[in-house]
Simulated assay, not measured.
Amino acid sequence: MINRYRPRIIIADDHTLIAEAFKGVLETEFDVVAVVNNGQALIDTVCRLNPDLALVDAYLPMLNGLDACEHIRRIKRTVKVVIVTTNADRDTAADAFRRGAFGVLPKTSTVAELQIAIRIVIKGERYVSPLIARDTFDLQMEFEGSTGFPGPLTIRQKQVVQLLAEGKSMKEVGLDLTVTPRTVAFHKYRVMHMLHLKSHAELIQYAMKEHMVAFE
């Protein structure tokens, strides 16, 4: 009989009942190799056990889940992180993806959605719950195929840079692209971080150098 590989998962949540509930749901399909209750323990356990995925509460003690996620993506790039949060808002989701998360779920999600999200992320794809603001979905799509580390600019990022370089405000760019100013700001600062640009002026200089915008 062939033994089918079961992806290995670590659960990080400081609420014991929630952590045990997650474990009970997931261990029928996956190997839950550890349950931890703070961010530092999560990082230590990830380094020791090298799981396939970590299901992480955004607001862990000692080191919050978002900071832990960013650290994990730096030291263990093969480990995928799914953030679960009581704050089902676009800002939290955007921050999670910026820090390298592969998925974001509110704690009000159903068991079925949790299982689906884990399967999708295990395959290397991104997942954001439809319960989170639609605007976040636009942000998440920009990360499809991304490792969370510097790489070529996406089409949307180029659009944002071009419009900003043309002198438009974030609000005006948002209206042109049918997104909110928060989304525009997220793309702008993501690009600046990727390209190591320190100011808006340097961003404009980059756009001109790359012939993204022409001035008469």
Rank of each mutant, 00 (worst) to 15 (best):
S129V: 06
G167S: 09
T178D: 13
N37A: 12
F22K: 00
I204P: 00
M208Y: 08
K76F: 04
F97E: 10
K209F: 06
L175R: 08
I118S: 00
G174S: 13
A54S: 12
G167K: 08
L195Y: 01
I10Y: 00
P152S: 03
H211V: 06
V213I: 10
H15F: 08
D95A: 11
V84Y: 07
R99V: 01
T147Y: 12
I118D: 03
R77I: 09
Y59K: 15
H196V: 12
T45M: 15
M170D: 15
L55A: 02
N50D: 15
N64D: 15
D89Q: 14
P150Q: 05
L60S: 08
F102N: 06
G174V: 05
K209L: 13
V81D: 04
R98N: 10
Y206A: 06
L177M: 13
L139K: 07
V33L: 09
I72C: 05
F97C: 05
I204Y: 01
K171H: 10
E216N: 14
L177N: 01
H187N: 13
F215T: 15
A12G: 10
F22L: 14
E172M: 11
L203M: 11
A34W: 01
N64Y: 02
P150T: 04
T86H: 11
G39D: 01
P51D: 02
T45L: 07
I116N: 14
A68V: 01
P152K: 02
T110S: 15
I122Y: 03
I43D: 04
E144I: 14
Y189T: 11
M212A: 09
L139Q: 05
K171C: 11
I120L: 08
G24I: 04
R134F: 10
L114S: 07
S109Y: 02
Y189W: 15
M208E: 14
F186Y: 13
C47H: 12
G65Y: 04
K80T: 09
T180P: 03
V46M: 09
Q205M: 12
K76G: 03
A21E: 04
A185G: 12
M208V: 09
I204C: 12
A185R: 10
Q159D: 13
A117D: 06
T108H: 05
E202G: 04
F215S: 14
I120W: 01
A112G: 12
M192R: 08
F137I: 14
L42M: 14
D135E: 14
R119H: 11
L175I: 06
V84S: 07
C69L: 06
R48G: 03
H187F: 12
V111Q: 14
G65D: 04
H196E: 10
L17I: 09
S109N: 10
S199V: 02
Q159A: 10
R6Q: 14
F143Y: 11
E172T: 08
A93M: 11
G39H: 00
I10D: 00
T108S: 14
V79N: 01
R190D: 09
I18G: 01
D13R: 06
R134K: 13
M62I: 15
I9R: 00
G145V: 11
I118W: 03
P152T: 00
P130L: 07
G148P: 13
G103S: 07
L66S: 05
I120Y: 05
M170W: 08
I122M: 01
A21F: 01
V33C: 11
